[in-house]
Design a protein around this nucleic acid. Structure first.
Lengths: 120, 120
DNA sequence: TACATACTTAACCATATGGTTAAATATAAG
DNA sequence: CTTATATTTAACCATATGGTTAAGTATGTA
């Protein structure tokens, strides 16, 4: 199969498909555009080994959602919002689209004897 | 690991992490709230075996995004927008949050000598 | 220099994905 | 009843995930 996924929708949605990573993303979001949050700090809430966290961070990194920079022996993580913005665009586009259609159906089902139905 | 994921954010984002499934979702969205689209019709654009499509559909089904109903020997698929609506809510919440913070940072960086900076 | 801190990398295991082909199932049609 | 159509299930394979423990690596500190 060997399908390359760079900073793509594939990688972004896959990265968001795990609760630990979503929590990390949320945490980094709360931290805002600061100097970044240390890996150890990010790891703290989770009952999980350090390597497990490290792997999650690499998944986020490969999705382009996270960058790391060294600060002494500490690595600080920051969010790059671009991939999620793109994912958001995709999802919003389609969500809005078919919800509108569902609304149209609801209107039709609920008011075929009202004036809306007179349109055709 | 054996982690149960029902119609959850996990399953929804995972389902969206594949281009074939996103295309299927898009197709079903375009079809709107109709009687549904036949599996064969959904499969048509893809150079992929029928079982491959069938598996994709089951991933979407387990995520609660798709329902199937038999119509003779044809199975018709319809979208259930609920899971994506929830995913959209999550993503929009966090996206909006940190983009606002980024904007705040931009404002700060760009206007520390303007009146905005006078607030503290 | 020696040791602790903060991580990552390596090696391993189990399960899920994403694909294949081949076989089963269900319905329609001849 | 036989055959074609539509789709799933079974069995298999390779790779990715999500976790583990054990071993590196890099930096700060005594």
């Amino acid at each position: 199969m060997v399908k390359y996924v760079g900073p793509s929708l594939d990688a972004t949605f896959a990265a968001l498909a795990d609760p630990t990573r979503r929590a990390i993303v949320a945490r980094l979001g709360e931290a805002g555009p600061s100097q970044g949050v240390a890996v150890g700090e990010l790891a703290e809430p989770f009952e999980m080994s350090a390597p497990a966290i490290s792997k999650h961070l690499r998944v986020l990194e490969r999705a382009g959602m996270l960058t790391q920079q060294r600060d002494g022996r500490v690595r600080r993580c920051r969010l790059d919002p671009t991939p999620i913005n793109e994912a958001s665009r995709w999802i919003e586009h389609h969500r809005a689209f078919w919800n509108n259609q569902l609304d149209a159906l609801a209107d039709f089902l609920e008011g075929p004897n009202k004036e809306d139905a007179a349109h055709d």
